[in-house]
Amino acid sequence: MKTATEALKDFQKITPKKIPAVEPFSKGHRACQGCGEVLALRLVAKAVGMDMIAVSATGCMEIISSPYPQTAWEVPWIHVAFENAAAVASGIEAGRKALIRKGRIKDDGAKVVAFAGDGATADIGLQALSGALERGHDFTYVCLDNEAYMNTGIQRSSSTPYGAMTTTSPPGEKSKGQMTWKKNMPMIAAAHNIPYVATASPAWHVDLMNKVKKAVTIPGPAYIHIYSPCPTGWRCGPEVSIETARQVVKSRIFPLFEVIDGRFVLTRDIKKPIPVSEYFATQRRFSHLDENDIAYIQKRVDDDWDRLLSLCQVTADEPPVEEPPTGE
């Protein structure tokens, strides 16, 4: 598989001085103060540009952008339901493909981008996402991960990190909060052997935008998992939203990497990580954790990081997967 590698040969990077001025996602939206998710969404939209066709799963970004008669979308946009953004996107892609082939619409190069939260991706929408990735539709799927069901009032999802307090994973006499380890969605996406998978944080906005630009440049499915701070749900100040998105990377809890044609590449090496406790300090969702809990989390974060480095090394030397034979 060389799809991504070939498509990125002449890739023109977005640079800090050449940030796209367009705002396909408009001001006047109703996201909470300090919402890191809507910033991530705004950055994705800027990177894709005005030739985007956007699909939203039900969730925060859907409701804050579309209370009738006010839409924050400057581009064609559709919301259908919670669990099916990937399936809707595949329908749009298939429809446009047929219409372009039949000469009924012009090939305007529009990019189909699906947006969904962590619950809509890792829980209720996982099947639809897996199906769409496996079928190979030319679209980009963006998971805006704020680590719980925030729109319904901060309930735990399978993407909620271990130990976090949510309204359905409350710490108590017999619980430390979330009792399970965060589901690794980027790895699940990568297991579909799609051309491009990446993780991103709004604290590195240029990196985020470049990953999005790559995702929409590469033909076939692409998956981007964006860490999206939620001051309301995480019980932190709105002003530290982006700093939190920085600390999570610096602590190695949320590594920034790409999987290009199956090869893992670390996009930000963290040589001197901050302790996970420093990342926890500003968020009250972790305030109940004791030293033992934090030591356990630190160990697992370190192990996961080592494993990711191994994957980078192992896949770097692998020959590309052979393309299937073509022809009629």
Binding site: S26, G28, P69, E74
Partner: peptide, 10 residues
Amino acid sequence: MTEPGSSKSF
């Protein structure tokens, strides 16, 4: 909603 970006009035 046929007027794109109508949220700007909010």
